[in-house]
Computed example of a mutant assay.
Amino acid sequence: MKKIQGLILFACAMVTSVAYAITLPGPVVNAEWLANNLSAVQIVDVRSDITSFGRNPEFVTDKASGKKSLSEVGGHIENSTLLNFKNARVERLVDGRKVKFLIPEQADFEKYIQAAGINANKPIILVPVGQDISDVDEALRMYWQFKVYGENQVAVLDGGMAGWLADGRTFVTSAATKQVGNWVAKSARKELIAGSEDVANASKTGAAQLIDSRLPMQYFGTSKKPDIGAYGHIAGAKEFSPDLLTKSVNGALYFFKPETYSALLIANGIKPTGPAISYCNTGHLASGTWFIVSELVGNKSIQLYDGSAYLWTLEGRPLQGVPLN
């Protein structure tokens, strides 16, 4: 009997060992690391244009040099799971009001992730398209949502699919698998989420730095998105444009080193340390700022204002900007 129990314990230990056979090197992995560890991780492709998942990429050839360069991402890394970003955020009731663009409730997020075929106890590598900061931030928003619901073994592929293709690495155009996964969400980590009252307090007292993650014309109020009820930014906020989050190399977007981000934050009047809240129009681009400050710079005191300027103005709260004609 003891021998049988010993064998059972050994088998359980082996399963656990296999499940955690690899530790991610950090919140960002490069293509070489991923290529060397494909079988040890779950590759989760995050994009809104899901038809491109099964479409061949497009390249252009320079007539003078004959060099090929990527013009449009298509296909995916073999054995990738597809997450449709259009379903990543949902409409929820907040104080009796319907509010769009929010993180799903725990059970709904778990169902969404399981439906994509994602499993527990195996590291997750999020792969953005990687050609525009908006699509990079799709993966970073998913990273934040995974973190909110307790997933620690998650990272983002630097350069995304664009970088993978630009390097000449192999891809496939097969359809996404339909199997159901067993990933389990934990109770929400409230410390990662800021609400409207947190933002109002930060605006009034300076208890936390407010970081506006939108383009200058939206920050200053010369233009706005249709869903936003007013022009300008929340009083006291400092701007950190999404253009500052990445560098372009061969048509793919890559992250800077942490010290570069610290210098950029300081140059924009933002302290790299201490309590902070990032926001944008709807909580999409703000995910990029949250990721940079929290995961790369290492300031774990930053929160993301889910709903952002959309929720703020929906509640009738004021923005300030330059005088308009």
Rank of each mutant, 00 (worst) to 15 (best):
I228S: 00
A200S: 12
V172N: 06
A200M: 15
V199R: 03
P258C: 10
S223R: 14
T177Q: 15
A185Q: 03
R214A: 01
R189S: 13
N250F: 06
A175F: 09
A194L: 09
P242W: 02
H233W: 00
G168M: 11
D227H: 14
L192K: 11
D212G: 09
V249C: 08
A175M: 12
T222A: 00
K225A: 12
V199N: 04
K178Y: 04
Y219N: 03
T170Q: 14
A207C: 13
D198Q: 07
Y219L: 04
S196G: 11
F255W: 04
F256D: 07
P242K: 04
K178H: 07
A237R: 03
S241M: 05
A176E: 02
T170W: 08
G221L: 09
K247W: 04
K257M: 11
N250G: 05
D198H: 11
F171G: 05
E197L: 13
V180G: 05
A188G: 10
G168T: 09
G206H: 12
A166V: 07
A166R: 05
F220K: 15
K186H: 12
G181H: 08
H233I: 06
A194H: 02
G229E: 02
L165A: 08
A175L: 11
K186P: 00
Q179H: 12
Q209Y: 05
A208R: 07
H233Q: 12
V180M: 11
G236E: 04
S203E: 04
A235P: 00
N182M: 09
F256L: 14
N182T: 12
Y219R: 10
S196Y: 10
D243N: 12
T246G: 00
A175T: 13
D227I: 14
S223E: 12
G232V: 06
G221R: 08
A252L: 06
V184L: 09
K224D: 01
T173A: 05
E239K: 15
A166W: 01
T222D: 01
K178G: 00
L244G: 00
G251C: 05
I234N: 02
A252G: 09
Y254V: 05
P242I: 10
P258F: 07
N250C: 08
A202T: 05
V172F: 07
V199L: 10
P216L: 15
N182A: 11
R169V: 02
N201S: 15
I211V: 13
A202P: 02
A185R: 03
N250H: 11
L215T: 13
L253V: 06
A230I: 06
S203P: 01
F171L: 10
Q218G: 05
T246I: 03
G181N: 02
A176N: 06
T170M: 12
D243S: 15
M217L: 14
T205C: 13
A230D: 10
K238W: 10
R189P: 00
